[in-house]
Design a binder for these strands. Structure first.
Lengths: 222, 222, 222, 222
DNA sequence: TATGAATGAGCTTTCATTCAT
DNA sequence: TATGAATGAAAGCTCATTCAT
């Protein structure tokens, strides 16, 4: 009867409470090391209660990842919808990825661990949101190619580079418990992405060429 | 009682045999899903025998990762020692990473899963080889900067980009069971790396052009 | 929330509804395999409601058996009260046993399973009706002996034979899901019972022959 | 560590020890009421050891019934093979059934409880031995008919009568904890069986014809 | 009365590890 | 060294029962 926690958390529904508790304890010690009873304790509910909301421990993990990743992808898509240029889109991807993970450190930890689940069912269940994210990235590159801002390149390789880099940067940040500096990596990462994609400014006026020049100068030494 | 395996494998020491068996079965279903008895069976030894060579299941995982990653890093270092230019080094990193993983698909699968171990002890133990690899990458970039082939950029971000991209490409390849095409991704990836690092040819015109040419020939069939 | 069932059944009291539901689900999968919640669902009531009518799951089983067996024995006693001769009584026992079980297949299934409860309390509780039935059978035999229709034999053994045979025939019928043929076994069984008891016609010639004829007519369509 | 029991029992193999322990505790409180740990304790082994010999608790029950019933049926068949007449066969059935159950009171208790398992898998698994027993009984009756010792009667009904009566007598004996008197019921039961089957002596001497005549008079008008 | 979410004791089963041989 | 039967702690999960509404 953890009364403190009961009090503090009972405004949320049990479902959310269990999901949050699971995020915490899975982040701490990993899905496999963590008995259901620990999740229950953290959530301030009885062991059996978890099974009123989730069919099994595995389903708890799946729902956790689906809910959280789904939210992340929705957020990412919303932000991207405002972007007019490929550069803006890339910046949004990097910025949103980093800021979201920074705000949801526990989620970052869980995904880092559990996205690589060997378990078939878990992997299939996460594939949806993950492939959505991959599509989002590839679309940005594809549009860049259509707009002639980016030369024709291998979409999949580009996506691997972008996602891999963001993921590894997040992993680094999570592991080194460097608790405020993910966002500071936005510009360096963005600059490298632009270089990797050989991004050029969309055709148009001289203005833009000038602007482009300035930008390159500005980024060159960051 | 697997006599075939016993015969076929008994030239190697028990130690190696167990390590190989563990690589196989951990790759198939993951460290946690895999009972020690399955490793023993695959290795053609008794369950108890494993504990003559490894203190615990965890130590088996640690040694496995240390040995295999160590070998990989040694191999990478050896290859890199021949490279004169940053481009050659980058090409060597991509090519060696991909070819090594392609030749050691099981290792690729195990690392993919277990490099993200939440377990403190395991993580500490594999940090060594992993940081070695990171250093190797960062050195290449650092030298590029010193040689003015690469503008001054954030070393850590560059390393995250390179390692993250290679790792994610490998993950993709492992997951999609696309069994022969990792190496085909070398050039697209390399091109993007060069763009990301804004790699420019080393100063000195003819000499260097000649040198560069030679290197490219040398790497083409390695 | 099974509205159909709620409507259809709400004329009966909750008590009867729960008892009927329990008969159904216990018959399907047995008392132990069957959670209380399944009874509740079938009865169209909440889990908790069951505990307003029955102290425990065990008491539910006890009451179920007591009520149903009680009704069966009352029915049997009523039918027997009309019988003048031992043969008529035996025929009534076989016919009533089979026809009652045929009409209450679910009850037959439950008793088949749960009459053998190892649980002390349950057994004591159902002993009442069961012993009543045994007495009924033994009385018929005893009267036969008194009337000289039956030689002096061991009452208990006779009862075991009669009850055991009827019970096993019913079990057979229940198990083989042969849904209409229990009644067809009346005459063969009766013939054997008469042989086993060495039943002979009561003394008194004409009178009795007439009486006997009437009885047979009376039973023929019952 | 129950050393007494360990000592006393360790001559037998673990398999037999577990089977015996299971027979005891299942007899006491029934399969469902009885945790595996109780079987283990009684057998003087660890809980986990049971799973080295049996895949599951259910398989333990199945094997138990199969082994024990199988032995009983083999014993019955052996005894029957010496019988020349139907009467001898019937007497052997009754005597063997009673004496075997009397010597294996625990088995009698377990079968009484668990032969009526609602569980599909268990039932299917027991069906083999049980149907064997039924066949044995029906064969005896069939041969009696062929030898003209028994009039043409319904085989199945005869078998239900014989098995049902023996089973119920055994149940009675088990329940009333009347620990020495099962065998005393052999003759009364046999007499009834002979009557039920209208058994007549095999053709032969006058004596027998006379005897047979008397018997027929008794039964003739039933 | 009636509800059904919540409880938590208790179950079956797994498996890393030990140790007598 | 090598074995593998035995261990027993610990896990996931079920479900009879309670109680605030």
């Amino acid at each position: 009867m953890n009364n403190d926690r009961l009090q503090e958390a009972s405004i949320e529904g049990k479902f959310e409470r269990i999901l949050n508790a699971a995020t915490e304890v899975f982040a701490e010690s990993g899905y496999h090391q963590c008995p259901v009873s620990k999740v229950a304790q953290r959530a301030g509910v009885a062991d059996g209660t978890i099974y009123l909301y989730f069919r099994s421990k595995e389903e708890l993990l799946i729902r956790l990842l689906q809910e959280r990743l789904g939210d992340f992808i929705r957020c990412m898509r919303r932000e991207l919808s405002h972007c007019k240029t490929t550069e803006a889109s890339l910046r949004t991807i990097v910025r949103t990825h980093f800021s979201y993970m920074e705000k949801n450190r526990l989620l970052a930890m869980v995904t880092r661990l559990e996205l690589r689940q060997p378990n078939q069912r878990v992997r299939l269940a996460i594939n949806g949101p993950l492939l959505d994210y991959f599509s989002l990235i590839e679309e940005v590159v594809q549009k860049g190619i259509e707009r002639k801002e980016v030369p024709k390149i291998n979409l999949r390789a580009a996506r691997q580079l972008i996602f891999g880099a963001l993921d590894d940067a997040t992993t680094d940040w999570v592991m080194t418990s460097n608790p405020q500096t993910l966002m500071s990596g936005v510009e360096p990462m963005l600059t490298m992405f632009k270089g990797a994609l050989r991004l050029r400014k969309p055709r148009g006026t001289k203005q833009i060429i000038a602007l482009q020049k300035r930008e390159e100068d500005g980024n060159a030494d960051s």
